[in-house]
Nucleic acid binder design. Structure first.
Lengths: 183, 183
DNA sequence: TTGCAAAGTGAACAACTGTTTACTATACTG
DNA sequence: CAGTATAGTAAACAGTTGTTCACTTTGCAA
């Protein structure tokens, strides 16, 4: 089966974060001739799962990304094979990997905008932000995650008052995305 | 500078989804001897950014993953270099890539559990789920995303009533994670 | 200025890369 | 059954791989 071989390659890619070489696939598939591997790989290339990159192989986005289906509409056959695009969450959510980091959120001060306790936010480091941005900031030397307003910080939860700095309000980064895992 | 070379390799990895070979790095760095590259790579190996994998190179998780910082606590120096772990969002959020797909959410029926209009959910395909799971289901032939209860579906928004099936309630998958991008 | 480690050059090497060719076994179609 | 496309074997090949050795250049501390 061909999809079984694809899964073996995907498994290898997940473990090693690189595609196996032809001789590695040889062992992987249990073949005894590299040409057999060559022909299998050619099929994956034809299907657009792998591509040639110089004299090497590299995976296409279809290889490792997940299919993204459109909106749910009543009675709509969302699982139809068309109009897929393929998405990597890292690529989708992280704009500038160099200046970004993740932060585990604690507290309920941002539940109004759907950031819950235990969520992970992607923060892009920068020293200034726009009003309305969710920022990681130090207000009077205390770290916090809040919405930036003109000269103060605001929670997204009616039970918290606005936060006016007594001395200092310093911005360290802007929240670009949230991520939550269930269970 | 060494970090500049690392960024060049990262850039290459993002474009090609594989590490460059020594001769490719040669061009990348502007060197004229492969040995110079060899020594640079050795440093990255020493730092744990790249590792040897057979007779090939492969990136470690520190190479492409983002640092995850702990919870924010008042006054806590979260940016201290210690107790980092490194996280790939894809690996963190997607348990079984083979059976998962993404779905763009429309509607406000799940705002109570922090799933908003425009969010993307990661769905794992399966035909049965536990009570309390957020499921992708077909209720009387209409697709929907709701919370599964005993024999019916429920929104997470007081403005919607429970959804009892007239004929049929079929489950297609379980929501394992949500993801939201700001701006 | 001297001494020395770090950084880079250049050439050589065996091992492995992907690819090709020629041939055989297998499976399927009419 | 025969005919033929598909799948796999075996061996050979040039180009590239990562690695090593000997040497030169650069930068920096004493």
């Amino acid at each position: 089966m061909l999809t079984e071989k694809l899964n073996q390659i995907k498994k290898f890619y997940r473990r090693h974060r690189r595609l196996p070489s032809y001789s590695e696939m040889l062992k992987l598939f249990g073949f005894s001739s590299k040409n057999a591997v060559f022909k299998v790989v050619q099929k994956f290339i034809d299907e657009g799962l792998i591509k040639k990159d110089g004299n090497k192989l590299s995976p296409t986005s279809r290889f490792f990304a997940l299919p993204l289906l459109g909106n749910i509409k009543a009675g709509f056959p969302i699982l139809a094979e068309e109009d897929h695009s393929y998405l990597t969450l890292d690529e989708y959510l992280i704009g500038d990997p160099q200046s970004s980091f993740l932060l585990k959120v604690s507290g309920d001060s941002l539940i109004g905008i759907g950031i819950f306790d235990g969520d992970i936010v992607i923060i892009e480091q920068k020293k200034n932000a726009n009003t309305g941005d969710v920022v990681l900031a130090q207000i009077d030397r205390e770290w916090t995650l809040k919405i930036l307003r003109k000269g103060y910080l605001e929670a997204a939860n009616p039970k918290y008052p606005p936060f006016y700095p007594h001395q200092e309000l310093q911005i360290f980064g802007v929240v670009k995305a949230v991520v939550r895992k269930f269970n």
